[in-house]
Computed example of a mutant assay.
Amino acid sequence: MALLVPPRSRTGGIVALVAHPDDESLIAGGTLALAARAGVPTGILTLTRGELGPIGDPRLATPATLGEVRERELAEAATHLGAGWARCLHHPDGELPWVDVETAAAEVAAVLAPLAPAALLTFAPDGLYWHPDHIAAREIALRAAALAGPGGPCVYEACWEPETACALVAAAAARGLPASLWGLEPEAFGSPTDGLPLTRVDVSEVIDRKLRALRAHRTQIDRGHLFATLPDDLGTAHLGVEQWHVAGGPGPDVLGALLGEAVRV
């Protein structure tokens, strides 16, 4: 499947800027799918191809081909989410903390400039589970938005409550379902959001699309993974709301304007 490429006209839509293919579906899949269903232009930009990630099934890729395979997986996930385009930049996986922020942000800004997106979705300061690449992606997103000037996108950071992954893993295990999260402890995910102004997006109506998009990243989802067979009802119960914080303060309610009644501030 060929990668979709950004259009050349201004969209005023939503773009997810993340570190690796699959990040977009995990932190923003519901918001992207909901936006696409509402007719809002959406896109996905990853800073790496994720070429150092795991290979859940050796029949799918080798270490030499993983980056190329994950690009194709991203294109398929984007289709499930209804995204208008998806693109991988080729910064080295695992090395984003050492990438020059100004150079990387300028590259991102150049991709986004013709589109003039209204919102840029990325990680919170915790990187979801303190992944250094995720934390660096946030820094690059903030700088890219700043380079766009006063008319640039509003940057939204994905916020998971500390209990989210724990409760989801426990619920899956109680049904005898796979419950692994890339070998990470569920306690590693999320951080306290007390006092943060949050925009909550109800994505329950598109949870099936979010889960299909996650499963499109087949190299990353082995048979024992939580998302391999997670049913929609558990997805809705534990991932049916995506929480966002506007970087630097409450800011404009861009998502509210784009998504309407699905958004609760």
Rank of each mutant, 00 (worst) to 15 (best):
P114I: 13
R37G: 10
V206W: 03
V169F: 01
A16H: 04
A38W: 11
W98G: 12
E185S: 15
A2M: 15
A172P: 10
R212T: 00
P197Y: 14
L120W: 00
A119M: 02
R8C: 14
A148P: 14
A146V: 11
L47Q: 05
P197M: 09
P125R: 01
L259V: 01
R49S: 05
P231Y: 01
L128E: 15
A144P: 09
P125Q: 02
D253A: 13
T122V: 04
L52C: 06
A118M: 04
H91S: 06
G56Y: 03
I14P: 05
A83C: 12
D253G: 14
A170W: 15
G30A: 03
T229D: 08
C159T: 07
L196R: 08
G82A: 04
P178G: 09
L168T: 09
A171K: 08
S191W: 12
G67E: 05
W130D: 10
S204T: 15
A213K: 07
Y156K: 00
L115F: 10
I27C: 11
P186D: 07
L60P: 02
H245V: 10
A110P: 07
V111W: 15
D208P: 09
K210A: 04
D194C: 09
P252Q: 06
R264K: 10
E107D: 14
E157W: 02
S191V: 10
R138Y: 08
G195I: 12
W98K: 08
R223K: 09
Y129P: 06
R49H: 03
A116Y: 10
G30C: 06
D93V: 01
R264Y: 09
L198V: 11
L3V: 10
P63F: 04
P54L: 08
A247I: 02
E68M: 12
V108G: 03
I14S: 04
R37P: 02
A16L: 04
R212S: 04
P197V: 10
L32R: 04
A38V: 07
L34G: 00
R10H: 13
H134M: 09
T103F: 11
L147A: 07
R87G: 05
C166G: 07
G67N: 06
G235E: 07
A213H: 08
C88G: 00
G249P: 12
